[in-house]
Design a binder for these strands. Structure first.
Lengths: 211, 211
DNA sequence: CCGAAAATCTGACGGCCAGTCAGAATCCGC
DNA sequence: GCGGATTCTGACTGGCCGTCAGATTTTCGG
């Protein structure tokens, strides 16, 4: 194993090529945000950085490969979030801690919204690679959440009809999806801070069993 | 307003044409399930029913229009679900009622999985029409959920830091998303019935405040 | 049952984008 | 400032999109 960066043909590449590759990734991310996956064209990505489609294919076998890499990068940004999910949330500080987690999660989501959307689509459509990346990202949070939930069940604050693993998945699901609704909810009177507070209250309740 | 069915050019169509149009919709749904939106080709849809692409464009301006119609049909199937969400869930029967709702929701979701996936993608990417359809579908459930949540807040069983509208959205979000994870969770030991029971317990807790 | 009008369907085409490849342009060590 | 290695691209093939003129099928009055 090596951390060298490769072109599509597998060759290790130098500094200039790395810069080009990075520019292509950034352009992909930008256009994904602006136009969505269904209108994303390799011609546009190349044009965005003033190069030709052939250059894109020099570094990636197809657009999916570039997006997959962006998804892996997003996972890196998700890792620090687990720091918010340590056992021992109490009746008094738990709600604040949940709020801190939600704040961090919202920032993360805002940064990678477009890429995560495609990651989830491809994962749900059965793409092996995107499934793997998504599962790994979700397990990051779910492992921590599971422990906290087990704690709550053990202490008798949570019903033991709750399966910790599934409950952890449900919490992640709720966060992910609710942030997807956010832009539309804003129009119906649910401000960002309302969403934040409600989500924090729910998470606090679900994983600790406190009220 | 009229309920007549139209071709892409707006003309009202007869029985034979209606049958063709229906076959095209069914083929679209089938291929969407099998191949996913990114590999969906009009050529394939036409070939599926033994006709030519030109026929497809006779009935729909583009593939989106066909999928949008499938999404509207899905909303119809969602309407009966609100019958499960009537106020008055009690400590004793609430969990069972939540379970019944989850069962119905899972069936609905399984039937329309592929179409709903695209509906949500397009909605999140900002498509006006898909947004409208999704919002209307979600509001169906959310209206009922809101009332139940308000009841719980009024009775002091739920903290009033919960915004009923946002909480209702969170419940819908959790259901939707968790079912999206389902196929992967199955591989990690979370069976369908575990998901059902956990989801029911969570919903029961969130919207009634009972334990 | 016939013929013409209406309804439905499609062959064939121009245009655009994906993806490839041979070779041009650039860089770097000596 | 030369030669080989690296990086980039013009130009091409093939496939799908979306259109339209006209072919085919159905309908219906007589």
């Amino acid at each position: 194993m090596s951390d060298d960066i490769h072109a599509a043909d597998g060759r290790v590449i130098g500094a200039r090529a790395q810069a080009t590759r990075r520019k292509l990734l950034d352009a992909t991310s930008k256009l994904l945000t602006e136009q969505g996956i269904l209108d994303l064209r390799v011609v546009d990505i190349s044009r965005e950085i003033g190069t030709s489609p052939a250059t894109f294919y020099h570094y990636f076998n197809d657009v999916d490969e570039a997006i997959l890499e962006l998804a892996v990068e997003a996972t890196e940004d998700e890792k620090p979030l687990v720091d918010h999910l340590t056992p021992g949330w109490t009746q008094t500080d738990g709600l604040k801690r949940a709020g801190d987690f939600v704040d961090a999660y919202m920032t993360f989501w805002d940064t990678h919204r477009a890429v995560l959307r495609v990651r989830n689509l491809k994962a749900e459509e059965g793409d092996r690679h995107f499934r793997k990346v998504r599962t790994e990202a979700n397990l990051l949070l779910m492992d921590s959440l599971q422990n906290m939930i087990r704690e709550g069940v053990a202490a008798g604050r949570l019903p033991n009809s709750l399966d910790p693993f599934t409950t952890a998945a449900a919490v992640v699901a709720m966060c992910e999806r609710l942030l997807g609704y956010q832009p539309e909810m804003a129009k119906r009177g649910s401000s960002k801070s309302t969403i934040r507070d409600t989500l924090a209250t729910l998470i606090f309740g679900i994983i600790t069993g406190h009220v």
